[in-house]
Every structure is written in C-alpha cells, then in structure tokens.
C-alpha cells in the first residue's frame, strides 16, 4: 500500500469531522482447504491462486484485507487496502487518537506490523494462548483440525452403522 496517499485520505476524513468507527482486518483464506490429494491440482493460469499445502505458494497468497471505517451522522464510509504478510501499515493515531486500541489489537491477533502506534501496549493487550490466532497458519491449522475431527466422527458413525447391520 502507498502510505503517503493513504495517510492523506485519512487526514481528509479527520478534517471533515468524521469519527473513526472501526478498523477491521479479514484474513483471506482464498479457497476452502481441499481434501487430501486434491491439493496437487494445477491452479489454473492465475499465478497467485493458492495451492493449499505447498508452503511457498500459500506464502505468496497470504493476504489480509484491512478496512478503516469512518462514520459521520448517518453516513458511513470505508477505506480498503490489501496487504500481504510482513507489509508495514502506518498507524493513524496522529489523526484519530482512539485508533491505538484497534491497532494494538490487529498487531496482536493478526500479526500485522503497524508502525507508530500512539500508545504502544507491546503485545500485552490480550496475551492469547494461541499466539497470533488469526494468522493464515493458525486459521488453516484450526480448519484442518476441524475437518479431521469431522472425518473421524463420520468414520466412527459409519463403523457403528456397519456393526449394527
């Protein structure tokens, strides 16, 4: 992302009297985790389409969507940016003092490198058990675990049904 023009846009909202309503991050997991074997399927022409478990390819597609939402009376607008893992995101604390909570949160939960936070809480805001719980790796690991558990459960119920029969 282009920090200078981004900060200029945020500054415009600030000058026009908008209120910071939300900074939201979405971890983009491009395709639902495919079952075993399907991962090797060639992923069409789009070069950045992820192939689920090949590490370098999924690295390339590790994208976060960030939305800065501003509200003024009845109006509501957002600035959207897409960044990849490791990109620095400038803090907007200089315009909106209240941004520090959102920014500390997205750094801690998503592992996004936010630079220049007004009140830097040094990763002590939540102190979660799973470090960086919304990173691509953590989400994929959880999805895989859920899928495995579901598969085991259905296998068990199938076995039970067989026994009955």
């Amino acid at each position: 992302m282009d920090s200078a023009s981004f900060l200029a846009r945020v500054g415009d909202y600030h000058k026009a009297g908008w209120r910071l309503a939300l900074i939201n991050v979405t971890t983009v997991i491009a395709a639902p985790a495919p079952p075993h074997g399907a991962a090797a399927e060639p992923a069409a022409p789009a070069t950045d389409a992820p192939t689920a478990d090949a590490a370098p390819a999924s690295q390339a597609a590790s994208v976060f969507e960030i939305a800065w939402a501003f509200a003024k009376d009845r109006e509501f607008e957002t600035i959207r940016e897409q960044i990849t893992v490791g990109d620095a995101v400038p803090s907007i604390s200089e315009f909106f003092g209240a941004a520090f909570l959102y920014e500390n949160e997205i750094r801690e939960l998503f592992g996004i490198n936010v630079t220049g936070i007004g009140l830097d809480l040094q990763g002590q805001l939540y102190k979660t058990v799973t470090k960086v719980p919304f990173s691509h790796q953590a989400i994929k690991a959880r999805l895989a675990a859920t899928a495995a558990a579901a598969a085991a459960a259905s296998a068990a119920s199938a076995a039970a049904a067989e026994k009955k029969a």
């Binding site: 809480l121 002590q124 805001l125 939540y126 979660t128 799973t130 959880r142 859920t146």
Partner: peptide, 18 residues
Amino acid sequence: AIPTIGYIHRGLEMMVER
C-alpha cells in the same frame, strides 16, 4: 493510566470457523 484488557478475551470471533 495504562489499560490492559484480555482477562475475558475468549476468541469468540473465531467461532465462525467451527
């Protein structure tokens, strides 16, 4: 005053996955 929260953080937003 330096705030610290997180004593009630459950990770509820992640429940959408499950």
